[in-house]
């Protein structure tokens, strides 16, 4: 036997239906009504999405809470600022990276610290660029000259020449000595 429920009745039952708190029979009656009634169907969807977003907000709140607690704790032993510094250098493992991201999203103090670090980075880089542009000296010619001198004195070519000359002199000297000895 099927009982045709009215829209008002179904509306009253919807939240129990979502929570699966209805008896099998009543559930069937509600489903039968939902199949033919777009208005109640829309109500069901609206209720579902509302519950879903409420759950999300709740989850976010608990993350904020735990994040804030963890931040306060970790700040004490300085771990977090070390990780935050490594975070902006992109030197953290994926897991640590995610953890820091979570803190930053949930904690305004952490965000402030991060912003300060970025600012410091920026002014340091500006300053360094300026220092680079201010250095006017050109060392290239001087270095090349010094290397040239170095090669001339110690280079393999000149060293080979000196050795060859030495061997020739030695040979000539030996031959002369031998000739003189024989004569």
């Amino acid at each position: 036997m099927t009982v045709n429920l009215t829209c008002t009745q179904v509306s009253a039952l919807l939240s129990f239906y979502i929570d699966d708190k209805l008896s099998n029979q009543l559930k069937q009656f509600v489903e039968a009504h939902l199949e033919i009634c777009p208005t109640c169907n829309a109500k069901l969807e609206a209720l579902r999405s509302m519950i879903k977003s409420l759950r999300e907000v709740h989850e976010k709140l608990s993350v904020v809470k735990s994040g804030a607690e963890e931040y306060a704790q970790s700040e004490q032993n300085n771990d977090f600022s070390i990780n935050l510094s490594a975070y902006i250098d992109n030197e953290l493992s994926d897991e640590e990276n995610l953890k820091v991201k979570k803190y930053i999203i949930s904690n305004p103090k952490a965000r402030q610290d991060l912003e300060k670090m970025y600012k410091l980075k920026k002014i340091m880089q500006n300053s360094f660029d300026k220092a680079k542009n201010n250095s006017k000296g050109d060392y290239s010619k001087f270095i090349l000259r010094r290397i040239d001198m170095h090669e001339e004195i110690y280079g393999p070519d000149s060293f080979a020449k000196v050795v060859a000359l030495f061997i020739i002199i030695l040979t000539v000297f030996t031959i002369t000595a031998v000739i003189i000895f024989w004569v």
């Binding site: 680079k132 542009n133 250095s135 000296g137 050109d138 060392y139 290239s140 270095i143 090349l144 290397i147």
Partner: peptide, 14 residues
């Protein structure tokens, strides 16, 4: 080498 020195010298000086 001359060009390499020219490119790096400002950086090293700074």
């Amino acid at each position: 080498l001359e060009e390499l020195i020219k490119r790096e010298q400002k950086n090293i000086f700074a």
